[in-house]
Amino acid sequence: MNTLALGLDRTRVELKMYSREKEAVFFSFLFPIMLLALFSVIFSSQFDDAGPDMSAARFFLPGMVSAGVLLTSFQTMAMSVATERDDGTLKRLRSTPMPPVTYFLGKVGLVGVSSLLQLVVLLLVARFAFGVPLPTSADRWLVFAAVFVLGVFGGTVLGIAYSSLSTSRSIGAVVIGPQLVLQFISGVYLNFNDVPEWLQRIASVFPLKWIAQGMRSVFFPDGMAAQEMAGSWETGRTLLVLGAWALVGLVLCVTTFKWFKRGSV
């Protein structure tokens, strides 16, 4: 209980530090919300003939939710942990009586709170600003919750592990470049069916494609499942792949995490 209480205290500290970093808040928290609003307005005319079941906002919502999961978990963790390692924050924390697990609980709390808040804002904007219908069946919400939790957890541990690949000076490029490519080939900003097949296969190796597919299965009409690679939503496979990536990320996080920057004693 004492460790849990310390973890909650650390979460509050992490949230305060996060809220003071305006660039991080914009690019990881507000960016998907802003893009949803912009895409819904800019591309609205292209969905005039799509029928009453599909609008620009509904089309882009699953992708923006998926991008939000990626940004608030993977990007936030990779960049913040690399910075804290290089500026000596991790070294100082390691030398305090605070249990090491408290640091990780704080990071998990930060990602959990920020991801959930972002999700709520995204859904509110989609529903009340653009009239996107939200799921009404319990099974869809269960799929949504499972994909969201596995995506956030996997992104968090993978981001912590990824932070060891670079220093704070170059981590931005190391993170943002690859994740932008993945967003475009994983059906976040484009119709996944329009992506060349060989790029679809590359995207299928990584979790973002499956997060986006899982979210489409929640928010899209059932008839659009035929446009997926397998002609169905593949809910079971989606959860299996995301679970596997979460496990791989956890193992990598545990085995690669370092409290001290390279070359330090």
Rank of each mutant, 00 (worst) to 15 (best):
K258W: 04
G109R: 04
T102M: 00
V132Q: 08
S137N: 09
G68T: 11
W245N: 13
V157D: 09
S166E: 08
M215F: 15
P133R: 02
Y103G: 01
V149C: 05
A57Q: 02
S55N: 08
T96Q: 02
L122C: 07
D9E: 13
F184G: 07
A145G: 11
A5P: 01
R201C: 00
S80R: 15
S168C: 06
S44D: 15
E21L: 07
G131R: 05
M229P: 13
V265Y: 02
I176T: 15
A212C: 10
G177W: 08
N193Y: 12
F26P: 03
V143Q: 13
I171M: 15
C253W: 14
T156A: 12
V69T: 06
T255Q: 10
M215V: 12
K261W: 05
Y18K: 06
S170I: 11
R58D: 06
V81S: 07
A56E: 03
V205K: 00
Q227D: 08
R262H: 10
L30Y: 12
L240H: 07
A230R: 12
G51I: 03
P100F: 03
F219V: 13
L105A: 01
R85F: 03
D49Y: 05
V147A: 01
R10Q: 13
I171K: 04
Y103F: 12
I42A: 12
L247F: 08
W198S: 09
T102W: 03
G68M: 14
M98S: 14
A57C: 01
A37T: 14
G159L: 15
A244E: 04
L4Q: 06
L117E: 02
F184E: 09
S115R: 01
I42M: 13
V175L: 09
D53Q: 08
R58C: 05
V125D: 00
S95H: 05
L242K: 09
M215L: 15
N191V: 00
V195R: 04
V125G: 01
I42P: 03
P196K: 09
L90Y: 05
V251D: 11
A78L: 04
A225T: 01
L36V: 12
